[in-house]
Design a protein around this nucleic acid. Structure first.
Lengths: 200, 200
DNA sequence: AATAACTGCTACATCAATGATGCAACTAAA
DNA sequence: TTTAGTTGCATCATTGATGTAGCAGTTATT
């Protein structure tokens, strides 16, 4: 234990500072390029990252490994975004607005990586399931506290919520006002677009 | 003009009856296979269609041609589904429910083909733009007649609507009750999930 | 029954993506 | 200033997808 070992989250051994920067650049470039065209080649990714193609392969043995690494990084940030909203303790409505804003930021930056649901990686699947469960708990609390109607099907609510997140993040303009977007999204989820006296 | 010429919508010359069936089988198989995995090979499509790979290439010279043909067929059905709801003449709310049910049926059957927005084909783009405009007109009428709130951003409404269609169709179980699903979808769009006295 | 169309099969050619290696030059870290 | 890690480049092997062509057998159409 004499030499300091920088621990890296499961991905592998310690890296030199410049290598770490390179890896970061590759992951971000991959998100941009693959987000635009999921069938893009490793070469295009490398070019966007400003490195040689072989360097990409040095860091990520296979294309799958690269995508898995992207997903891992993204899902961790996603998890953090959810937890930061205190979904189990804060008032449901507050947690919903706050969490949505946090999630949107992550989703805008890692849209492609997060769209890859099916992963062979156990750790990723674990976090994913965890986030899902947390989300469901929040919606249940929201329903019990009267924020959501009692007759709302929570499974459908969650699907609609995810769909709205996806759609909102798709119409991104980077530093668009995320908070305003989150407000719009949650308002849509809760009120819809119909006139109040419409057809009750 | 002595021999009868079966006219085919732009794709090419007249086909013999069995060839027509084969073409249909290929298109449907392609939808199933590519819907499950967009990167699937022509071979997998051929196998699913129950024909040899070369036969697929005989009908559709390139992969692009196949996908374009799928999109063309799908967008036409989509267009018909929209028009059948009389979006410009029926009461907005009626047209909305009816149109949604129609669209869902098409979207469930041609989910992949309809997700290919960017097409080089001019005719496809035309129909697509036409449907979009029709949809916007319907929403405008809905707003003017008080079905939608006056302060609703119609561009956002349309995006949400499409997102809901997409999501609802994704959780398909083929002959799930489409009408019930459409009702659920439109109710969601109009009312959301919040309790009525929530935060007005 | 005659004709023309269609299909499966086999074979071939091509091309792009992938992934691995070795080496010389460079750079962070001790 | 060593030392060890990192990168670009050039090279090569492999693989899988794509697309073409011809032939023999089958099937729709007349």
């Amino acid at each position: 234990m004499k030499r300091q070992e920088r621990v890296r989250g499961g991905t592998g051994r310690a890296l030199r500072a410049d290598a770490e920067r390179t890896e970061q650049a590759i992951l971000e470039a991959a998100e941009r390029v693959l987000g635009d065209n999921p069938a893009a080649s490793m070469e295009q990714v490398a070019e966007a990252a400003g490195v040689a193609r072989t360097t990409v392969h040095r860091r990520f043995a296979t294309r799958d490994a690269l995508i898995t690494a992207m997903t891992a990084r993204a899902i961790q940030q996603f998890d953090a975004a959810v937890k930061a909203a205190r979904p189990d303790t804060a008032p449901p409505l507050v947690a919903l607005y706050q969490g949505t804003a946090n999630i949107l930021r992550v989703k805008i930056g890692w849209g492609f990586a997060l769209s890859r649901a099916s992963s062979t990686d156990t750790e990723i699947a674990r976090i994913q399931a965890d986030v899902l469960a947390t989300c469901d708990r929040l919606f249940r609390r929201a329903q019990e506290s009267g924020v959501l109607r009692a007759d709302a099907d929570l499974a459908w609510v969650r699907r609609v919520y995810y769909a709205l997140i996806h759609e909102a993040a798709a119409g991104r303009s980077d530093e668009d006002d995320t908070d305003a977007l989150a407000t719009l999204l949650v308002d849509t989820l809760l009120r819809g677009f119909g006139a109040d006296g419409g057809h009750l």
